[in-house]
Design a protein around this nucleic acid. Sequence first.
DNA 1: CCGTGTGAAAGCTGAGTGTC
DNA 2: GACACTCAGCTTTCACACGG
Length: 226
Amino acid sequence: MGRPPSNGGPSFRFMPNEVSEMDIILQEHQNAMPAREVLIALAEKFSESLDRKGKIVVQMKQVWNWFQNRRYAIRAKSSKPPVKLDVTPMPRDDSAPVRILPQPVATVVPASVPASVPPSIVPSMGRMTAENSYMEFEAKSARDGAWYDVASFLSERYLDTGDPEVLVRFAGFGQEEDEWLNIHKHVRQRSLPCEASECVAVLPGDLILCFQVNRRTTTTITTTKP
DNA sequence: CCGTGTGAAAGCTGAGTGTC
DNA sequence: GACACTCAGCTTTCACACGG
């Protein structure tokens, strides 16, 4: 929670969708401060949203503050490179016998991808599948066993065992952190968090990840595979 | 053993300020 | 106006104590 206004008013916080929208704008501006008109438009738009209309008026100054803080945070973060856990470096599989397929980077399409990975993998963050739905991926780093968002798939190769691998660029990391990863085991479609209001969209057969709050209030979501 | 309540510490994030 | 902090309050996390 941010610092509340000194006038004693209720504390203010941007909604997740507002944050993501401003994030996108910030990226479009190459991390530069958007024009004043853009800030005003955003403030007006946020003020007119269903969640805020009639309750909270978002000031242009507040939007401006957000951009200022975000830009500073990003810069501060990038000044000291992101540290992936590297306590016990796993042996990298670079030495594994492989045969590199001469595939152009822009059209990397692993021939035998698991069901978790859509048929078309292109080296950009957002990928449109055949159904024109927006796909994002995450990959499990061999170095620390953690899942990270995938920024792009740079290349593809096949081990002698026939297992397909892709060269992954992790989101927020640079070339030095790229890893060759087994598509079947270490790449999956990114899990998307759901709002409570989106529960009605869950259908029988959908794969979901849930947790049990406690013994009494058990989440009773059934997943029956078709 | 398990559930619950409490408090401290850390983290997050909006706002304020000084400098250029 | 942009930058580089700093401030301040809320949220989250964790440890611990207590009672059933």
